[in-house]
């Protein structure tokens, strides 16, 4: 193993070797120990230029892919400019994981399906051509169908928040023999909900280097919520981010994104539209009416449709009730 020191060299090494890139290692090390990942590894630890937050002239932030989740959660300027992102970062995993887990690693981690993570099963994600969760236990499975045979929900919470900000991913390098997805693309385009074989679309040789956010909105309030059984440190059954922008006491713009319900994080445009003109939390209940209609539950996870609706309702009520002074 070597740790090349610049982005171009790392991207070249990744393309050459087909190695998996290792940032904080919290997902990759677990998969290697579980025996479901092997092959070469390239450490990104030497890429100091991918760490930290850069503030651009228009007041917007560009967050290096190796910035830790804890740094995003604690950064005072990020908290003020992008409250939904900071709240999400603070709520995921545990303090020790946030301390080493990175923004890039969180966006590109593999899913948490027990079948995928078990050495006893083959599935679409591990080179097989079946989904044992469909016939088996899929209580935590997807409830919004994007055309994938795999039913593992996408695990990234930060992706949900970045979707709500329409953030952009910066990608260096290029996969062998492909045109690549280009150096800049919406974070949403890191994922393909119809693809059953992988959790992101970057090919070996492509390296996520940063996420860029648009200039912060004036008068934004935001909230993040996850439905869990324990109080802390638990993967969500459903998670939701809401940000609303106010002018003269009414909502003029809204972004609502949800996770743990589909193969990718999702925006809910119909809910967003219903919020325009809202003046307080009482608008939430009406805005979420259509959410259940989006859902196509599996035989044994029907509860998730109503839970999605109610988690969105909860996050909207909090965002709409939040102090508009922030």
């Amino acid at each position: 193993m070597n740790a090349p020191q610049n982005v171009a060299a790392v991207a070249a090494a990744l393309r050459e070797t087909g190695a998996e890139a290792r940032a904080g290692g919290t997902d990759l090390m677990a998969r290697r120990r579980e025996g479901i990942a092997g092959g070469p590894v390239t450490d990104l630890a030497g890429l100091v230029e991918l760490r930290g937050v850069e503030w651009r002239a228009d007041g917007s932030a560009r967050i290096g892919a190796l910035t830790t989740v804890a740094e995003v959660a604690a950064d005072a300027r990020l908290r003020a400019a992008y409250p939904a992102l900071a709240l999400t970062a603070a709520a995921l995993a545990t303090p020790q994981i946030r301390a080493v887990g990175t923004v890039g690693g969180n966006l590109l981690q593999r899913n948490r399906c027990a079948y995928f993570r078990s050495p006893l099963f083959d599935c679409h994600q591990s080179g097989g051509d079946t989904c044992p969760a469909r016939a088996g236990d899929h209580a935590n499975g997807t409830v919004v169908d994007l055309g994938s045979a795999c039913v593992a929900p996408h695990p990234s919470s930060l992706a949900v928040a970045l979707l709500a900000y329409a953030a952009e991913a910066e990608v260096a390098g290029q996969a062998k023999g492909t045109a690549g997805g280009g150096p800049r693309r919406p974070v949403a385009d890191l994922y393909d909900g119809a693809d059953s074989s992988r959790d992101h679309v970057l090919a070996p040789g492509e390296l996520l280097t940063a996420v860029g956010l648009p200039a912060p909105a004036e008068g934004e309030t935001a909230a993040y919520r996850r439905a869990t059984s324990r109080s802390r440190a638990e993967w969500p059954l459903v998670e939701a981010v809401a940000r609303v922008v106010w002018r003269e006491g009414a909502v003029v713009d809204a972004a609502v994104a949800v996770g743990a319900v589909a193969r990718t994080p999702l925006r809910l445009p119909e809910v967003e539209e219903a919020l325009i003109g809202a003046t307080g939390p009482e608008a939430a209940a009406g805005a979420v009416e259509g959410v259940v209609g989006r859902c196509a539950p599996l035989p044994r996870n029907g509860y998730k449709a109503a839970l999605l609706r109610d988690t969105v309702r909860d996050v909207l009520e909090r965002a709409l009730a939040a102090d508009q002074g922030i």
């Binding site: 290792r22 904080g24 290692g25 919290t26 090390m29 677990a30 450490d43 804890a70 545990t94 303090p95 020790q96 994981i97 301390a99 080493v100």
Partner: peptide, 9 residues
């Protein structure tokens, strides 16, 4: 900083 060392390279 407290860090979980079982997953840390």
């Amino acid at each position: 900083t407290p860090t979980a060392s079982c997953l840390l390279p």
